[in-house]
């Protein structure tokens, strides 16, 4: 990460991506605009995952619990207590932070595959808890957050989260904040510490770094981003259900990140978009579309083993962050 031309180009690229996404709101056909809203929210989930997996080198199979912590943390107060959107969103974030801190303290005693399994099992406990408390969560069936409750009054301006345009802009705003935060992070000393830990943890320890603390911070930051994504998903799209806590939603962010390129700032967005459109397009041609999805994944990884952006960076654009 040398300062200078590459750095300026990187900043310009990210601002350009945000500008293009902004413009797309006015260009995209209705259906695709809706999809982009969802993809941007889910890309935040993937970016959160990328902090831990891509930059810190910790493979978790339990991130569904952080996404679901945000989802339920925001959804349940709004549904049961009639709380407003901003308060509910903050509760969702808080749930993500508390959960990731607790999980981090325990799971970071392990590394490698043991970390993967421990996070997976904690997440499974969370999933079972959403079913166990069906009285409040309605378990797998889930809850519909009433349309009337999903609006914000900000300084006299009413913002309706069920309106496609405002939904797109809110998703874009959150996506942009997390994207720029990630960019700032990887260029900051803390981000370089994480990468160095990924490359050689023992050396960092001997150099006097508090490795555990750095990794715990990464887990919490990752949990915060994922919870933000979950909370936004609940509030913007109005549904909360335990499917989002299942193992599938732990594997998906891993897949999105790997497809787009681990440890690339824009990779998570690319991966999430790619995966969505592969399913959407192939399912239009055949009912056996999962076959095509599988083939597409294998071909992609054969030709782009570091993910789309990862391989592009390796071959052509070394300055990509």
């Amino acid at each position: 990460m040398m300062p200078g031309a590459g750095s300026r180009r990187a900043v310009a690229l990210h601002l350009a991506v945000i500008a293009v996404l902004f413009a797309l709101n006015f260009i995209l056909p209705e259906y695709h605009r809706g999809i982009f809203s969802r993809v941007m929210v889910l890309a935040v989930f993937a970016m959160g995952y990328n902090i831990l997996f891509g930059y810190t080198g910790l493979l978790s199979l339990g991130h569904a619990m952080f996404f679901a912590a945000g989802l339920y943390g925001a959804g349940l107060p709004l549904y049961h207590l009639g709380w407003g959107v901003p308060e509910s969103f903050v509760v969702g974030l808080a749930c993500g932070v508390v959960l990731s801190a607790a999980v981090g303290v325990l799971a970071l005693r392990t590394t490698g595959v043991a970390f993967m399994i421990v996070t997976m099992m904690f997440s499974q406990v969370f999933y079972l808890a959403t079913l166990y408390f069906t009285t409040y969560t309605r378990g797998e069936e889930g809850l519909v957050l009433p349309q009337a409750a999903r609006r914000v009054e900000l300084g006299g301006v009413a913002l309706d989260l069920t309106n496609p345009a405002s939904r797109y802009m809110i998703a874009l705003a959150m996506f942009s904040i997390v994207l720029l935060a990630t960019l700032a992070l990887v260029r900051a000393p803390f981000g370089r510490t994480l990468v160095a830990i990924r490359e050689n943890e023992e050396r960092m320890r001997m150099l006097g770094y508090d490795v555990f603390r750095a990794k715990l911070s990464a887990v919490i930051l990752s949990g915060l981003f994922c919870a933000a994504s979950g909370a936004a998903y609940a509030l913007l799209f109005g549904y909360v259900g335990s499917g989002f806590a299942s193992i599938q939603y732990s594997i998906l962010p891993l897949l999105w990140v790997l497809l787009g390129g681990a440890a690339t700032t824009l990779g998570p967005l690319i991966g999430t978009l790619f995966m969505f459109y592969v399913i959407d397009i192939t399912s239009a041609y055949t009912s056996a579309y999962l076959l095509l999805v599988g083939v597409a994944l294998i071909l992609l990884i054969l030709f782009f083993p570091r993910g789309l952006l990862g391989s592009i960076r390796e071959r052509w654009l070394p300055w990509l962050p």
């Binding site: 309605r138 797998e140 069936e141 889930g142 809850l143 519909v144 957050l145 349309q147 069920t162 799209f237 109005g238 549904y239 259900g241 499917g243």
Partner: peptide
């Protein structure tokens, strides 16, 4: 769950 998820 699909009904409830789709209803919004």
């Amino acid at each position: 769950h699909v009904v409830v998820g789709s209803a919004p």
